[in-house]
């Protein structure tokens, strides 16, 4: 058994008033501290290339066609079954392109597996994070909503190559 000796309070301490005034002065000074609130829609969160936002499809340099060849690897890699691809034939050299490429943003868990699975640099995680609409149907994004010029995603693409060089063998990068 341990007997703890409590500190005897002096008369001034028993009055509590000095401590109360000390606390009041502390909270008064807090009123003039810089604010820590972020005014969200006006001041968005800072993002960088490490940010893993919603997946987006890259366009080729012609700015018209997708880099996607509708191989279906991302669809297979997707753990949340968010991606749906219908491919069809094309006269272009790549022979196949997606007719329909839909990502259900309500299912997407922003894991980035699609980006890792893609052999053609066609899908990358962007820094876009905001997701709001009035219906579920509107949140199933089609090609028109997903396509982005390659320059917009360039930061992410560079970062992606930098980190993934660790396990990419030379044959698979070519």
């Amino acid at each position: 058994m341990v007997i703890i000796k409590r500190k005897e309070l002096s008369f001034i301490e028993k009055l509590y008033l000095p401590q109360i005034f000390q606390a009041l002065s502390h909270s008064f000074r807090a009123m003039f501290q810089p604010r820590i609130t972020r005014q969200y829609p006006e001041e968005p969160l800072p993002t960088n290339e490490v940010t893993r936002g919603q997946p987006r499809l890259t366009l080729l340099e012609d700015g018209e066609h997708l880099a996607c060849v509708s191989c279906g690897l991302c669809e297979a890699a997707c753990p949340a079954y968010a991606i749906t691809i219908d491919g069809h034939e094309t006269e272009r050299f790549i022979e196949r392109e997606p007719e329909r490429f839909e990502i259900d943003m309500l299912r997407c868990i922003l894991c980035g597996f699609c980006e890792e699975a893609c052999p053609k640099d066609a899908i990358f995680m962007s820094d876009e994070l905001e997701l709001a609409d009035f219906s579920r149907a509107a949140l199933v994004y089609d090609i028109d909503k997903l396509k982005r010029p390659r320059e917009e995603l360039q930061g992410r693409i560079d970062y992606f190559y930098q980190v993934n060089d660790r396990w990419r063998t030379p044959s698979s990068t070519s």
């Binding site: 009123m31 604010r35 609130t37 005014q39």
Partner: peptide
């Protein structure tokens, strides 16, 4: 407002 200021927040604005 005062509660927000004391807690380093902004309050209703």
């Amino acid at each position: 407002k005062v509660s927000a200021w004391i807690q380093w927040r902004v309050g209703p604005n």
